[in-house]
């Protein structure tokens, strides 16, 4: 099988979209998404981006829900390795390409690294406007009134936005963007990140990007704080870390335990490397 599975024209199409996405931060570039031997909705957007940008010098890390060993991460990593023979790692620092679903690693990313996020719903407006042409017009006019109305309604009723994950962000003061289903805890990491962040939606056939050092702000009212998930007074039952995003685990004896969600971070902490 050829390196990277996709034929050269498919890769060039994805690379074209990737370059335009980098040039227009937060804008969704349409591309001719190819079918892969992995199901739609299971990371085919991220996978197509990774397969198109990866080369022999890259070291790959794949995570799902913060975990390198999760079944979907294993499956995607095995597939990429089977078509590239590239080196892989669990270490966030060592990786040049990190493909992830739903999390941004705890350890800060560096210049030269690329974070590829798998995206189920690339369109931030989808919950307030279903028609894709109208969505495009709203983006053209930077008209996000409906998002503000939603935020206002939620705040009036519940004291805050009802959105727990996929919290809408404004990129470079121009485009409202869906940051993929990351928790709000990770939303802040998008701002001025040193790594290139590429977002791929295979089923919806869209690629978009946040270049390094780009202004990314959650959509919120000025007089309201952006509340992120907090795990106050909680410590990882495995490595003892605190102040990180945690998994809540209900044990057989009825107790609740907390663990670092980022398992590679947890390992490193346990080995005393952090």
């Amino acid at each position: 099988m050829r390196y990277g599975f996709l034929d050269e024209d498919a890769k060039k199409e994805i690379r074209r979209a990737t370059l335009k996405a980098i040039a227009i931060p937060g804008y969704q570039v349409s591309f001719a998404s190819r079918e892969l031997p992995i199901a739609r909705g299971w990371g085919t957007g991220g996978l197509q981006v990774t397969l198109s940008i990866i080369n022999e010098d890259d070291c790959l890390k794949v995570i799902d829900q913060g975990c390198d060993g999760s079944v979907n991460a294993v499956n995607i990593r095995n597939f990429i390795v089977s078509v590239t023979d590239n080196a892989t790692t669990l270490d966030t620092q060592e990786a040049t390409i990190i493909q992830s679903r739903h999390r941004i690693p705890e350890e800060p990313l560096k210049e030269g690294q690329t974070l590829v996020l798998q995206v189920p719903y690339p369109e931030v407006l989808t919950n307030v406007e279903a028609d894709s042409f109208k969505q495009k017009v709203m983006h053209a006019n930077s008209d996000y009134a409906k998002l503000w109305v939603l935020l206002y309604e939620d705040t009036a009723q519940f004291g805050d936005s009802r959105i727990g994950h996929r919290y809408p962000v404004m990129v470079h003061d121009r485009y409202a963007m869906d940051p993929s289903p990351i928790p709000k805890y990770d939303t802040r990491k998008l701002h001025n990140n040193k790594a290139l962040i590429l977002l791929g939606a295979g089923r919806e056939k869209k690629i978009y990007a946040i270049p390094p050092y780009t202004k990314v702000e959650p959509l919120k009212f000025e007089d309201r704080a952006f509340k992120v998930e907090s795990f106050e007074n909680k410590k990882c039952a495995r490595c003892g870390a605190s102040g990180v995003f945690m998994d809540e685990v209900h044990t057989d004896d009825g107790t609740v335990k907390y663990y670092c969600n980022d398992t590679a971070y947890c390992d490193k902490k346990l080995e005393g490397k952090l």
């Binding site: 829900q65 679903r101 289903p181 928790p183 998930e229």
Partner: peptide, 9 residues
């Protein structure tokens, strides 16, 4: 697929 991060959020 697991969705425990988003569910926790």
């Amino acid at each position: 697929l697991p969705h425990y991060v988003t569910f926790q959020a």
